[in-house]
Design a protein around this nucleic acid. Structure first.
Length: 355
DNA sequence: CAGCCGTGGGC
DNA sequence: TGCCCAAGGCT
């Protein structure tokens, strides 16, 4: 990259971004806290999905202090449906660190901000450049795709080691006068023009500087390996109503769907045992299975639940585990539940509470 | 480093 | 339908 090339790319990218950028809620502010919230929500999540969550979240937690003192269950409820729920807990933990250790001022150096829980290399660079105009790299999937094409970088972006190549490229190319628009410009370009398939090269502001376009290779880049099949888990859940209350179980604080609530659920890999038997063993209750509620497949990033759910009647209670609790139907609505549980709950309500 | 961690949408 | 994809971080 010679100096003239870099200057031209910066100029075209920044001016394109400032003229064409989408009107998004988090682009109305430079508040480091709000930028931080948006960046965490946007991790592996589409803009259109994030918008309503962001609006509700900032409305409920407008400041570092308000989030720091938030109730964790309420926080998770705000996050319900967004996925990757540990993001919410890590965000709050990071915010608490800022309030307690940094006088409620989000740190403005990579070294300091990177110490915060949930703030990795990307989020650090994004907050620094967007909120503080610090010329730091913010390399995500978009940036790797755009730069792999612009600079004809053929290394496998699935390998963690490769990210360093792109971070170094950004540090060389970045507009030090306007790192905010430069970094966002790269991501915006990746989102609307330099898309994974069928990139809109004829609309691209840096087309004439793009090596892959010159070579006609834009569709072949970036190089990315990987794809593993998800393992199937056969899950059976039961909705148990007793004296107008519903039995829920809180999941462990680590691992899949941490701290979320669910209906009592067991995995039956083989047909060796019945649902009733395994429920009795795991929950120390006896039940009689009733009508089926909903059956569906729920695909996570690395595993699949083949769900079946049933109504059930309680016949004996030998002392529930401490993570189980009875809730009124109103209270059930206020517990943070993952999407597959919401599906069951909605199907159950439709049958039992309407007319 | 590799595996884990959600969800919804596009083709 | 099946697979890929998205503004990643943690362990």
């Amino acid at each position: 990259m010679n100096d003239l090339y870099k200057q031209q790319v910066r100029k075209e990218l920044v001016s394109w971004f400032e003229e064409e950028k989408r009107d998004l809620p988090w682009r109305k502010t430079k508040d480091p806290y709000k930028i931080w919230v948006s960046e965490v929500m946007l991790q592996q999540t589409k803009v259109d999905t994030v918008i309503p969550y962001y609006e509700r979240f900032i409305s409920k937690y407008p400041s570092l202090e308000s989030l720091a003192s938030a109730d964790e269950e309420e926080l998770l409820k705000e996050w319900e449906g967004l996925g990757y729920y540990s993001r919410a807990r890590n965000l709050q933990a990071g915010v608490k660190e800022v309030v307690e250790d940094y006088g409620s001022i989000v740190p403005s150096t990579r070294k300091e901000i990177s110490k915060l829980k949930g703030v990795g290399p990307y989020t650090a660079g994004a907050v620094l450049s967007i909120a503080y105009s610090v010329p730091e790299h913010a390399v995500d999937g978009n940036v790797m795709r755009v730069l792999s094409r612009l600079l004809l970088i053929k290394e496998d972006i699935a390998k963690p080691k490769t990210k360093k190549v792109f971070e170094e490229a950004v540090m060389e190319l970045i507009d030090r006068e306007n790192p905010s628009s430069f970094n966002q410009g790269l991501m915006e370009l990746g989102a609307v023009i330099c898309t994974p398939t069928k990139p809109k090269c004829l609309l691209c502001p840096v087309r004439e500087y793009c090596t892959a376009f010159f070579e006609g290779m834009q569709e072949e880049l970036p190089v990315k390996t990987i794809n593993k099949k998800t393992k199937i888990h056969k899950m059976k859940a039961v909705v148990i109503e007793e004296d107008g209350k519903i039995l829920l179980e809180k999941r462990p604080s680590k691992g899949l769907l941490a701290n979320m609530w669910q209906f009592p659920m067991v995995e039956l890999p083989t047909a060796t045992h019945t649902v009733e038997e395994v429920i009795e063993h795991d929950y120390r209750i006896s039940i009689v299975k009733g009508k089926e509620i909903a059956s569906f497949k729920h695909i996570f990033s690395h595993l699949t639940w083949e769900m079946e759910s049933f109504e059930a009647k309680l016949t004996k209670d030998k002392g529930l585990p401490t993570n189980c609790k009875w809730f009124t139907k109103i209270e059930v609505e206020n517990q943070p539940m993952p999407v597959p549980m919401l599906k069951i709950w909605n199907a159950w309500k439709e049958r039992n509470l309407e007319q």
